[in-house]
């Protein structure tokens, strides 16, 4: 049994009429590929943006954040995030006595960043750790996630004593 795979038989066929046809097809295909590649790489080439295949990812991430800055009713929170897209997250969190909290976030992962925003309704504002639940939308990113879009649900707990935040995001990411 020949363990060298299919290379040798193909090389053998090159000498035949069928082999010549195959070689011609390969040359034409290669030329087309070069032309297509040139078109794709050309600046401003029409349709270049559509060449990338869209990916969809079901995301479930959780972050445990601590306050790194406060300006009145706006907090800046940072911390590690684990789950489908692990990394670090930075959140701008606004809580001004309104029944809803608002957040803008950026997740910094190995392959790029993902940015979005969310809003949640607070359940028990008198609690030392009121929880909130709402919707989030992913608005963009960088690197692999440069074209990120998506939506999902946002869950969280705000620790009023130390201004910490635990957040969980569950949603669908298109990138």
């Amino acid at each position: 049994m020949n363990r060298s795979g299919g290379r040798r038989p193909t090389e053998k066929r090159c000498g035949s009429a069928r082999g010549r046809a195959t070689a011609t097809t390969l040359i034409v295909a290669s030329a087309l590929a070069v032309v297509l590649a040139a078109l794709t790489l050309a600046p401003g080439a029409a349709g270049a943006r559509h060449a990338r295949a869209a990916r969809v990812l079901n995301v479930r991430d959780e972050g445990h954040l601590h306050s790194v800055g406060i300006s009145g009713s706006r907090l800046t929170e940072e911390g590690p995030v684990s789950g489908t897209i692990p990394g670090r997250v930075r959140v701008f969190f606004a809580y001004n006595g309104s029944p809803t909290v608002a957040a803008q976030f950026t997740i910094y992962s190995r392959y790029g960043s993902i940015s979005g925003r969310g809003q949640g309704r607070v359940s028990d504002p008198a609690s030392p750790a009121p929880s909130f639940r709402g919707a989030l939308s992913i608005t963009g990113g960088s690197g692999r996630y440069a074209h990120a879009r998506g939506s999902g649900e946002l869950f969280g707990v705000f620790y009023r004593r130390r201004l910490g935040l635990t957040v969980q995001a569950i949603g669908k990411l298109n990138y």
Binding site: S73, N96, G97, A126
Partner: peptide, 16 residues
């Protein structure tokens, strides 16, 4: 009062 004042983030009133 200005809503930007951090009354809700003050850490006051942790019990009721």
């Amino acid at each position: 009062y200005p809503a930007t004042l951090g009354i809700s983030t003050s850490g006051l009133g942790l019990a009721s």
